[in-house]
Simulated assay, not measured.
Amino acid sequence: MFDLLISPSQLLALSKDNVVIVDCRHQLTDGEYGQKVYAEGHIPSAVRLHLDVDLSGEKTGNNGRHPLPNREAFASKLAKIGISNASQVIAYDDAGGMYAARLWWMLRWLGHDKVAVLDGGIQAYLAAGGLLDAELVALPAAEFVIKPTLEKTYSADDVLSALGSNQLLVVDARAAGRYAGEGETLDPVGGHIPGAKNYFFQRNLDANGCFLSAEVLKQQWMATIENQALDAVVNQCGSGVTACHNLLAQRIAGIAGAGLYPGSWSEWCADASRPVATGPTP
């Protein structure tokens, strides 16, 4: 079973029995990008899930840019594309796991642990000799039953009530500029949740877009978390996507227990009564 990462060589050697490969490619500035590149060529037998349509729920204007969908509706969608409780799911993208990690986390949110991210994405797969296929894939429908969640979530109220205390440590996965409130392009308000620390998700990756070793990741993450209890660490980002990348990196490092604030900054800043801080991490 692969439950964190799978290398291209492991994927190429993997028996395809009960394996579902999911193309998660996406661009925040171009909602049509993922479908376009999927049609041009994808890993053979891969189905596709769209971040905005499939990996997000209905937006209300105050629940963030990528709110979580209803769990039952998402489970039904997984079953429709051929994912069952017996499936080994492999998620990939072309952005260092930025979007694939969202599917990794969401499956775990439904209690499914047989899910891994393709390390290095489609680029590493091609470099390893993998081939692409442009054929539209439709797998037989399956049955997917929700199990007890393997992930912990926090609401805006949870975070708000802990401000000014040591109850929770919020870690923001956005780039340093957006965290500081400089050059914000995706959300109407710049800045960060007061007291949050900044850990840009791309720090988890090497120059080739693959995850760093468990040892290096552990050093980096422990330096950020310091003495905070792991079960009191809350990961957030702009809309609950790249925070999942940080959660995956923590698991690779052997650090378990942290949770996700799904609404993240885009939900937080939608309510003007919630405090906002600016500037770099102290």
Rank of each mutant, 00 (worst) to 15 (best):
F2V: 12
F2D: 10
D3F: 07
L4P: 03
L5D: 07
L5S: 06
P8N: 10
Q10E: 15
A13P: 02
K16F: 13
D17M: 08
N18I: 03
N18H: 15
I21T: 13
I21L: 14
D23E: 05
R25W: 01
H26C: 10
L28D: 03
L28T: 00
T29F: 11
E32L: 12
G34E: 02
G34T: 00
Q35P: 02
K36V: 08
Y38L: 02
Y38R: 05
Y38F: 13
A39P: 00
A39G: 13
A39S: 14
P44Y: 09
S45W: 07
S45V: 04
H50T: 06
D52F: 01
V53Y: 10
D54V: 01
L55M: 15
G57D: 06
N62G: 12
G64F: 01
P67N: 11
P69Q: 11
N70K: 10
E72H: 13
E72C: 05
F74A: 12
L78P: 08
A79C: 02
A79W: 03
K80Q: 12
K80F: 11
I81N: 10
I83A: 08
A86H: 11
A86G: 10
V89H: 11
A91M: 06
G96S: 11
G97Y: 03
G97M: 09
A101M: 07
A101F: 05
R102F: 03
L103M: 08
L103P: 00
W104G: 00
W105T: 03
L110D: 01
G111Q: 00
K114R: 15
A116W: 04
D119T: 05
L126N: 08
A127T: 09
A127S: 15
G129M: 01
G130Q: 09
L132S: 01
L136P: 04
V137F: 12
P140V: 00
A141I: 00
A142P: 01
F144P: 01
K147T: 04
K147I: 00
E151H: 05
T153S: 12
D157E: 14
A162N: 06
L163A: 09
S165P: 08
Q167P: 02
Q167N: 14
L169D: 00
V170S: 13
D172T: 02
A176C: 10
A176G: 14
G177D: 15
A180E: 15
G181T: 01
L186Q: 13
G191A: 05
H192D: 04
P194S: 05
Q202W: 07
R203S: 13
N204C: 15
L205M: 03
D206I: 09
D206G: 12
A207Q: 15
N208R: 13
F211N: 00
L212K: 15
A214G: 14
L217C: 10
L217M: 06
Q219R: 14
Q220N: 14
Q220M: 13
I225M: 11
E226M: 09
N227W: 02
A229N: 13
D231I: 01
A232N: 15
N235Q: 06
G240L: 04
V241C: 12
H245M: 01
L248C: 10
A249T: 02
Q250G: 13
R251G: 00
I252R: 04
I252P: 07
A253Q: 00
I255L: 15
A258Q: 13
A258G: 15
L260W: 12
P262H: 12
G263K: 11
G263C: 11
W265P: 02
A272Q: 12
R274P: 02
R274E: 07
P275C: 01
P275R: 02
V276I: 14
G279I: 04
P282E: 06
